[in-house]
Design a protein around this nucleic acid. Structure first.
Lengths: 108, 108
DNA sequence: ATAATCCATCGTAATATTGCAATATTAAAT
DNA sequence: ATTTAATATTGCAATATTACGATGGATTAT
């Protein structure tokens, strides 16, 4: 197959999975970390920063954008990509909650 | 292509990406949530719980195990799968740190 | 106007993932 | 020893992902 049976899972499960999937590639993690580091951003910088061709970087940026992890503001000729805090907060809270639940468990 | 250029990224970037990737499927999120819910676990339960065939579930469990998100203790005939707290802590701290960094930013 | 820069999109090849039927493996029960 | 139950593995088809060259549109610089 190759296609996930998303219709069988809850909306929240699909949401978390979609966000996690978008972060499931080292290039996209590197992009996020770069955006955090420079605190302001233009795509050409990102291309210079990564060991990947420009179309590939563009594609990764698109996936991060689709997952709601970054947003891009057009700024004249170039684009200012930024971290979308809201989405990262979903993850932070999701995992914080998991840790909270697990530490109160007594399994294995 | 289809193969990630992992060798060009840092070990930490690859680590986070690998863990995130393992969570990038709703079935695997559902498995994690089920393990959290029942607080003790046997695989056959998981197969009953999910809308997927046994080999498929087994494969998803294997991927979660490879990523270090769960561990399985053999218990006679069946296997007790459990959350691996350590790995989830890595994620929790990673995203907590991102939120901390972002809130101190003034971009866009 | 022309050239240069930035970035997205298209097309395509290589590879990975998802899902399952069939089959193996392992341990408990009879 | 045989059967039964719980998982794992194998093999395969369908689909998705990754990567990049070529190309094109938009904006700025000359």
């Amino acid at each position: 197959m190759g296609a996930s049976k998303t219709e069988h899972f809850t909306e929240q499960q699909n949401q978390v999975a979609t966000i996690a999937k978008a972060l499931g590639h080292p290039a996209r993690i590197a992009i996020i970390e770069y955006l955090l580091k420079v605190n302001a951003c233009i795509c050409s910088d990102i291309v210079d920063e990564l060991p990947l061709a420009q179309p590939t970087v563009s594609q990764h940026l698109k996936e991060l954008k689709n997952a709601g992890l970054i947003k891009g503001n057009i700024e004249g000729n170039s684009i200012c990509y930024c971290i979308e805090e809201k989405t990262f907060n979903i993850l932070k809270e999701y995992f914080t909650n998991i840790i909270f639940t697990v530490t109160n468990q007594k399994c294995c």
